[in-house]
């Protein structure tokens, strides 16, 4: 097994009396393509927010690239190399496609007002080139000058991914990327994600939809009622009684 990139230990989050995420531990190694699935309300989004720093955990630790990042701010974690997309499409609507992507590159390279005033040429060039590269990877260079809000829904998904790629992430977390896509588009997306992974990006795919995850991921983590109930290959997970119970329910369920 190669290096561990992300490791979460005993991660727990309470909201008042509700235990949204309970004692979840998992690791992701460099180069993996891991799926995180679970029925609605399983705690996927909360776990996602705990990892990216948006929500502080009640208990447990998040270790990224060998460093304890528990309690760090989202921008600090992002700058360490954790890129993400949002479930409900959050492009910057009034900015151009290119400018949207540039924000990811600016986040990664850092930016100061002084550099905008004097001697910022090399820095700007690096941001420009990184942004263009990210647009090339998702095939949106022809729309570079368009206002993001005018793109089709599907293209805005790729724009979000490009923006995350411009941060040069070591770990890319995609939050329900297939939401709102039809079957053809989902298949294209799956293809795209596989190629992204083949190109060397470590991906954590948080999905509601089983098909995309089972077809693409080498390992699947299953969450139900805030707990991790399975962690293994897609084949093993699909046969796991606990998973079947969580997704389909069992008649004599005593819990």
């Amino acid at each position: 097994m190669s290096n561990t990139l992300l490791s979460i230990q005993g991660l727990t989050r309470r909201f008042g009396g509700l235990l949204a995420v309970s004692d979840v531990s998992a690791t992701i190694a460099e180069g993996e393509l891991v799926g995180l699935i679970g029925p609605n309300g399983a705690g996927k989004t909360t776990l996602f927010n705990l990892i990216t720093g948006f929500t502080p955990p009640s208990d447990g630790t998040v270790t990224f690239d060998g460093q304890d990042v528990t309690g760090r701010k989202p921008w600090q974690i992002a700058r360490m190399g954790m890129g993400r997309t949002f479930q409900n499409l959050r492009v910057f609507p009034n900015m151009t496609v290119f400018d949207n992507v540039s924000v990811g590159a600016v986040g990664a390279f850092g930016q100061s007002p002084w550099r905008a005033l004097v001697n910022g040429g090399a820095h700007s060039r690096a941001v420009s080139e990184r942004s263009w590269e990210a647009l090339e990877r998702v095939g949106l260079t022809a729309q570079a000058g368009d206002i993001a809000a005018n793109l089709s829904y599907g293209k805005r998904k790729y724009l979000e991914i490009a923006r995350a790629l411009a941060t040069a992430p070591r770990l890319l977390i995609l939050d329900e990327p297939a939401a709102g896509l039809n079957d053809t588009e989902t298949a294209e997306l799956a293809d795209f994600i596989r190629r992204l992974h083949a190109g060397g990006v470590t991906v954590l795919l948080v999905e509601h939809d089983m098909g995309l995850v089972m077809g693409s991921c080498s390992r699947v983590i299953v969450l139900a009622s805030g707990r991790k109930i399975a962690d293994g290959t897609p084949e093993a997970v699909q046969r796991d009684p606990a998973v079947l119970e969580a997704y389909l329910g069992v008649e004599d369920d005593a819990a």
Partner: peptide, 18 residues
């Protein structure tokens, strides 16, 4: 651009490393 990103969606800008 980073300033405009704040205006558009500051949480999102945050997760880009801003």
């Amino acid at each position: 651009n980073a300033l405009r990103a704040l205006r558009e969606d500051d949480q999102c800008a945050d997760s880009m490393g801003i």
